[in-house]
Amino acid sequence: MNDQQLLRYSRHILLPQIEYEGQDKLVNSHALIVGAGGLGSPVALYLAAAGVGTLTICDFDVVDLTNLQRQIVHTTSAVGVNKAVSAQATLQAINPEITVNTVCEKSSAADFEKLITQADVVIDCSDNFATRYLLNRLCVQLKKPLVSGAAIGFEGQVTVYDMRSDNSPCYHCLFPDNGEDSDLRCATNGVFAPLVGMIGTCQAAEALKILMAIGDSLQGRLLLLDALSMEWRTIKLSKDPACTVCA
């Protein structure tokens, strides 16, 4: 790290759990963020500010005025701009020390396989089951840690599927794919603005901990938030021995 980076990240370096070694790991890490919407916004902002050296952001959608109530990485002037490109501009303004790659087209399974192979951690900020199942399957196959989050209405959830561990459950263990299309989207169901920030920030924290190999991750635990009553609950997760993806 150069002198500017040492100053920029000094409050991390002061933490005994991180110090220079941990921050250096972040600077030399690569995170893949799938989705630059409500969850992807705080994830991208905090990973960029924290100094993750390379971020790759995937989103083929464009910024809409209705997004700005919660998708804080975008501004009014970005309406009509691709979300990954809009996020890139914001992140580079916050931290010019990092590299931000964008994927602006809808990615195929082969595309995601290449992207996940290059990444040290994958953060799923998507809003549909098809993408979640695909990312999960590829992370199981490639043994990459997957930080998963979801939010709708006033309720959110976050967990970690770390396929580097033989004991880790996967997304399919928790939500088996039964072939039904039951996606809940913010566009038709609504979402409380701060909720995605709270869940996305948790995802960012888990990703940073994984990259630095510190603390205990949410592997094997599902964290649930009811923002209306402001109650957090934790559910223990186990690997499904009959899972068709990771068993």
Rank of each mutant, 00 (worst) to 15 (best):
A109I: 01
E97R: 03
S86R: 00
G149W: 14
V122N: 08
C125T: 06
E113Q: 06
K83W: 12
I123K: 02
D124T: 06
V160Q: 06
N101P: 08
S86F: 01
Q92S: 08
V140Y: 09
N95I: 10
E113Y: 02
V160G: 11
E113M: 02
V147I: 15
A150C: 14
T76I: 15
D127F: 08
E105M: 04
Q118V: 05
L115A: 00
A110F: 00
T76W: 08
V85T: 14
A151D: 10
N82K: 00
N101E: 12
E155Q: 15
E105F: 07
V122W: 09
I116R: 02
A78I: 05
L138V: 14
D120I: 00
Q118N: 12
P96Y: 02
K143P: 00
I152Q: 07
P145T: 12
V79E: 08
T131N: 00
K106T: 07
D124C: 07
C139Q: 10
V100K: 01
T99F: 01
N101D: 10
M163R: 09
V140I: 09
K83Q: 11
F154N: 12
L142Y: 08
A87W: 02
A89V: 10
A78E: 13
A84I: 04
S77W: 06
I152G: 06
I123H: 07
E97K: 02
L146G: 13
A78R: 05
E97L: 15
V79Q: 07
A87G: 07
T75D: 13
L146P: 07
K114E: 11
M163E: 11
V103G: 00
Y133W: 08
K144H: 11
N95A: 07
N95S: 08
L138C: 09
S108P: 01
V81N: 08
I94V: 15
N136D: 13
A89T: 15
T99M: 01
V147W: 10
I152W: 07
G149L: 08
V79L: 11
A109W: 01
Y133M: 05
V147L: 05
Q118C: 07
G156C: 12
A87P: 04
K106E: 11
C104P: 00
P145M: 14
S108L: 03
G153L: 11
N95F: 07
N101Y: 09
D124N: 06
D127Y: 06
N136K: 03
S86K: 03
V85W: 01
A150D: 11
Q88L: 01
N136Y: 10
